[in-house]
């Protein structure tokens, strides 16, 4: 899982985090996180985003509030999190116990030519989450850190913010379905049952 850079391989990490995912709902921010969750395995409980940059964490909050018994995981990039970073304050105030936000931090905007993000220059999203009021934060730097993260995601015992410094290499694209109505309808059916289509 560790690459030559000494940092985690993003797709191996996401695969390990999603191991035995059960009823976990996953929202992935646009770009590489969406390709990552799709490479690990497309399922109706995945919402890979194609747009709405800055909104991934808030989509996760809406699901977590509506489905309090279900673990919800947002996997997004540092650039996407930075664009909607105020959401950390919004989410920490509500603090749903079934929500985890995992930032895959490669310190770059990967889809647009690998320009550096603010995290490359020392901005620390873990510290920002702590400042916002996240009681539980975790840095994920080695494969040995993953089981504790996986337990925290499924424990539903408190809001969690985790950040993994990942290798910046761009990986082959694995594209999810692009039709947003399909992505929405299939996730609703998976979470609410077939009657969701009659709402």
């Amino acid at each position: 899982m560790l690459t030559e850079s000494g940092k985690l391989h993003r797709r191996a990490l996401v695969g390990a985090v999603l191991e035995g995912r059960g009823d976990l709902a996953v929202v992935a921010g646009l770009g590489a996180p969406a390709w990552d969750i799709t490479a690990v395995g497309d399922t109706p409980l995945n919402l890979p985003l194609w747009g709405g940059m800055g909104g991934a964490a808030m989509i996760g909050l809406g699901i977590a509030l509506a489905q309090p018994e279900r673990p919800v995981l947002v996997i997004t990039g540092d650039g996407e999190m930075l664009m909607g970073v105020g959401a950390l304050a919004t989410i920490a105030v509500k603090a749903p116990r079934n929500l985890t936000i995992l930032v895959l931090d490669n310190e770059h905007y990967g889809e647009t030519g690998m320009q550096e993000t603010a995290t490359h220059h020392g901005v620390d999203l873990v510290a920002m989450a702590q400042g916002a009021g996240f009681k539980t934060t975790q840095r994920v730097n080695t494969p040995e850190d993953v089981p504790a993260l996986r337990r925290a995601i499924h424990a539903k015992s408190g809001l969690v913010f985790a950040l993994a410094k990942i290798d910046a290499a761009s990986l082959p694209l694995v594209l999810p379905p692009r039709e947003g109505a399909v992505l929405q309808a299939r996730m609703r059916e998976a979470m609410l049952g077939p009657q969701a289509a009659f709402e």
């Binding site: 709405g52 809406g62 609410l192």
Partner: peptide
Amino acid sequence: LGGWLGGQ
């Protein structure tokens, strides 16, 4: 969007 996905 998240609320609607989750049924609220």
